[in-house]
Design a protein around this nucleic acid. Structure first.
Lengths: 138, 138
DNA sequence: CTTGAAGCTCTAGTGACTAGAGCAATTACA
DNA sequence: TGTAATTGCTCTAGTCACTAGAGCTTCAAG
């Protein structure tokens, strides 16, 4: 049996976060010691590792809940799991594209400031005047 | 004079968000009509456009507050504004790098699922077993 | 003059935690 | 066995940048 601290060290999920996951129903409430402390089995450790892994990959808690539900029904077609992963991939790609545009814009703004005072600072001017933007960033 | 709705349409900032910015002190409380409705000047429109632009570029509200303060002191050296922009650029680049790693991982996970049921779904297995990961993603 | 859109204030909710207070239980060591 | 340090417990509230909704008032058009 593992204490909540053991679980935390082994999975890298912080202690309050584990309790938060329990409250959200992502991990089930474990057994308790005589003194009311949480005691986890290996199964619960693995489940938390799964969650940690999925969170690292940017899955939303709701997605993770769906994936866990699916993993309890191994006989079901896996189209749903696949769809969740595909959607997550699409969303990550979108974020990357958006951030790339911001990067370009910021590079332009942050590198050509050669003014000495705020009055002729390119950063401030660029932010004041959207027309200075190379292209629309939404 | 513009109503809050005019301002919203012209800047693309939603009406409740404008009121929220006022509460946060990002935009100052404008004049009111006889019937207590907000009436904005062109200057306030421009300020909101500035904020919108900076938010689009991912600046935090605190950063924007600092940039606005700076823009009221055009005689100051602009090193601070430049620093804020540089930091924002660095943070955007970091996010891009991180998302790229996630993208690679998700591609691997989401494209090689050829199982029929959840039982042999690669998505689920990959999430369960961190060891399947090509490299560490933090 | 009426009707419907737009405005007002206020409170509470979002997601995914994080921080802190004030206790109780456990563990390590003497 | 004693005690001190660490870890655990519950509960509330805070974070960020909004967003939603209730219940009301004001404004502009026809």
């Amino acid at each position: 049996m593992f204490s909540i601290g053991d679980l935390s060290r082994r999975t890298g999920v912080k202690v309050p976060t584990i309790r938060y996951y329990e409250q959200m129903g992502l991990v089930s409430a474990p057994e308790r010691s005589e003194g009311n402390q949480r005691r986890y089995s290996r199964q619960e450790l693995e489940r938390l590792a799964f969650i940690r892994h999925a969170r690292d990959l940017g899955f939303a808690v709701e997605d993770i809940r769906a994936l866990i539900d699916l993993s309890f029904h191994p006989e079901q077609p896996c189209g749903h799991a696949d769809k969740i992963a595909q959607e997550q991939l699409a969303s990550v790609r979108e974020k990357i594209a958006r951030l790339r545009r911001l990067e370009a814009e910021l590079e332009r703004i942050a590198t050509c400031c050669d003014g000495k005072t705020v009055g002729d600072c390119y950063v401030i001017r660029a932010l004041s005047d959207h027309a200075l933007c190379a292209d629309e960033h939404v």
